[in-house]
């Protein structure tokens, strides 16, 4: 027994190492699944019309936007990987949980009422669904990609670039690239669309000048089917502070209150310009320490750039932002 013992023990140790390697290496992108061909237009239409029904899933976002770390911004905005757990119910019901290593933020809506919960502050914010724009944070690729297709479809060249497997499901790779006239920092957006449910499963944003995605949001795990209705309601736990969101002041506290937002241009090089007034400096981070000082016929201000977009904050209180270079922002300000 002793003679065979050592080789066996050594083999066991090696098996453990191999197991560790298998665990560490992500399940490789398997062979591209065979799917019936589809035209880009058909695919886009089916995405916009799709009703995937209830599902539960885990979303992983990989962020390389190159945003400066700003106090007051959610941790997910900084470069790195973050995870969200997403549930969708039948109609406008949803639940999103954003875990960090030792806390969690939860967003729940039953269609009529919404609740948000932050485990760090133990605060519950609740209000009627009408008071909350959108469906909670657009953390799931389905929502985000749907909005993008809606907004950018017209100014893009569309293509279906083969197939892929996302979260174990076969999917078409829809590629949106800006038309040559669009003056944007972005190169292309790739959306993996579930072959059966026609729900976007993964969204990849590629910027000019970099082969690596600036942003990748995708399901790592998704299951369609009826969900427990208890997921879409929320009872404030004992010991929590409940705040009711005022119905007449939509938006979250961190946004610019009473801001007038207008959009200059459309498609990929659309620029959003907001007049926030010079007041309420406490609401936005101190910009003097980040960004570069710029000036021009439009006035002067600070420019913050990232891989996928730029923001210009002028000294007289205007904000221009878009997935565009500086020049397009300043043009939008003078218009």
């Amino acid at each position: 027994m002793r003679r065979f013992g050592r080789p066996v023990a050594a083999a066991v140790a090696v098996a453990g190492l191999v197991g560790l390697g298998l665990l560490a290496v992500p399940a490789g992108a398997g062979a591209q699944p065979e799917l019936p061909p589809v035209t880009p237009e058909e695919l886009v239409r089916s995405v916009l019309e799709a009703k995937p029904g209830p599902f539960a899933g885990t979303v992983e976002a990989e962020n390389a936007l190159g945003l400066p770390a700003l106090p007051g911004l959610p941790a997910a905005a900084a470069d790195g990987t973050s995870t969200a757990r997403v549930w969708a119910g039948d109609e406008r019901q949803g639940r999103v949980q954003l875990p960090t290593s030792d806390s969690e933020r939860t967003f729940v809506t039953d269609g009529a009422t919404f609740w948000t919960w932050d485990s760090d502050t133990r605060e519950v914010t609740t209000g009627s669904r009408a008071a909350q724009p959108g469906r909670g944070p657009a953390v799931d690729p389905a929502t985000a990609a749907g909005e993008l297709i809606d907004r950018l479809g017209g100014s893009s060249t569309l293509a279906v670039d083969g197939t892929a497997e996302v979260a174990g499901r076969p999917a078409y790779e829809l590629v949106l690239a800006p038309q040559p006239t669009e003056r944007t920092l972005l190169r292309e957006i790739r959306i993996a669309v579930d072959a059966e449910k026609r729900m976007p499963l993964r969204l990849v944003v590629l910027a000019n000048g970099s082969p690596d995605p600036a942003l990748r949001i995708g399901f790592t795990d998704v299951a369609f089917g009826p969900q427990d209705p208890a997921l879409f309601t929320f009872t404030p736990p004992p010991g929590s502070t409940v705040r009711t969101a005022p119905a007449e002041r939509p938006g979250n506290r961190r946004g610019a209150p009473n801001a007038q937002v207008r959009t200059v241009g459309d498609g990929w090089d659309a620029v959003h310009v907001a007049e926030r007034g010079a007041q309420a400096p406490g609401n936005i981070p101190d910009l003097d320490r980040i960004g570069t000082r710029v000036s021009g016929p439009w006035g002067s201000g600070r420019l913050i750039t990232s891989v996928v977009g730029s923001v210009l904050v002028t000294d007289d209180g205007r904000i221009a932002a878009g997935a565009v270079p500086e020049q397009v922002l300043t043009e939008a300000l003078t218009r």
Binding site: G5, V12, A13, L17, L20
Partner: peptide, 12 residues
């Protein structure tokens, strides 16, 4: 996996 590696090395 760590357990298996540790056990294998220990026994060997």
């Amino acid at each position: 996996c760590y357990l298996v590696v540790g056990a294998g090395v220990t026994v060997a």
